[in-house]
């Protein structure tokens, strides 16, 4: 077929409003999904940031969101499982808060449908912030005069200081925690030199092996579907399953009770994964290289050559994005007391 003829066909296609563009790699979007009932505002985001860093909403006044989701690191705590009040540790590894707004559901098992819902969980978890109940949290917030004004600015209304509003504020702040412009993103936008050759090789390998089946570009997490999406881990048997005790946790089954949900988890984003060791739901795997080997074996029944592991790890390092600079907020004081008296 002649070039002209082909041109005609394409012109006809263009007339139908459809594009013939081949599938390409996309960069991380700069806009996160925002729920209609919680629009982003400056005041809300600023309040959310204060609450995120404020340890006074833990029973001992020592643990804030940032304790386990350290924004000055990879948005987690680099521990196998997090340490909450009284040195208690939980059952699962802290997921990164960076880019969490792109996840369809929150927590490893997806038991929270939104960041708003998620924010209410850890404050009252006995192994995390350890508050007895959410009413107690609300009381503490109201007892801090500075917060009354901040909530009023952010939400207005008669009774602005509420758990729901606090969760909305924290979620709004978390929706600003995105890390674009990773080497991968710049490469996807056309800068061929943004990734090193072995990183590009790693990406192609990552794709060919089938990793992108679950870790889908550009978020490199599960699909953003209504109700979330969950995958079985570990899928195949093998020595790593025992070595790292990967089947002790029932995953989403514990939430739904459904047999089909056994060992199912939300597919976590791999953005900034190089910064969030140790790995997996139980944090049992200490290094990124080893995590790559475990995933290849348990999910794809593939044993990788060491060179392949290195390429994939190199690519995963290219998912480390640009972190917005964050100034620690001043928190409204509680003069004369470390935590508000109850």
């Amino acid at each position: 077929m002649t070039h002209t003829l082909k041109h005609h066909w394409l012109a006809i296609l263009a007339g139908t409003g459809l594009s013939a563009a081949a599938l390409a790699w996309d960069a991380l979007p700069l806009q996160v999904p925002v729920p209609a009932d919680n629009p982003q505002t400056e005041a809300k985001i600023e309040l959310g940031k204060q609450l995120f860093f404020d340890p006074r909403f833990s029973s001992t006044g020592t643990i804030s969101c940032n304790t386990c989701h350290n924004l000055f690191l990879g948005g987690d705590d680099n521990r196998p499982t997090s340490m909450g009040v009284h040195g208690r540790t939980g059952p699962r590894n802290a997921p990164t808060v960076w880019n969490s707004a792109f996840h369809a559901t929150q927590f490893w098992d997806g038991r929270a449908a939104s960041l708003e819902e998620q924010a209410k969980g850890p404050v009252v978890a006995s192994v995390e912030m350890g508050m007895a109940d959410l009413d107690m949290v609300a009381k503490r917030m109201r007892a801090i005069t500075g917060y009354q004004a901040a909530f009023a600015r952010a939400f207005g209304g008669d009774n602005p200081v509420s758990i729901d509003n606090a969760a909305k504020a924290v979620a709004a702040f978390e929706r600003t925690l995105i890390t674009p412009n990773s080497p991968y993103d710049r490469w996807a936008q056309g800068d061929a030199n943004a990734m090193l050759p072995n990183q590009v090789q790693g990406l192609l390998l990552f794709d060919q092996l089938g990793c992108t089946g679950c870790h889908q570009a550009p978020f490199f997490g599960g699909p953003n579907k209504r109700g979330g999406h969950f995958a079985v881990f570990p899928f195949h048997d093998g020595e790593y399953v025992g070595t790292y005790n990967l089947r002790a946790d029932m995953g989403r089954h514990a939430v739904t009770g459904r047999k089909s949900d056994r060992h199912k988890y939300k597919v976590p984003t791999l953005r900034n994964v190089a910064l969030t060791a140790p790995y997996f739901h139980n944090g049992a795997v200490p290094t990124l290289d080893q995590a790559v080997r475990v995933m290849a074996t348990t999910q794809l029944n593939a044993t990788l050559f060491e060179e392949e592991v290195a390429h994939i790890s190199a690519f995963l390092n290219a998912l480390t994005g640009e972190f917005p600079s964050i100034a620690m907020p001043r928190l409204p004081p509680t003069p004369g007391a470390s935590i508000p008296t109850e």
């Binding site: 794709d207 060919q208 089938g210 889908q216 699909p223 579907k225």
Partner: peptide
Amino acid sequence: LKAEDFEEPQACGKCHQ
């Protein structure tokens, strides 16, 4: 049904290459 109830083919194609 909503359009979001269906996945796009490229998602399937990553495993079913």
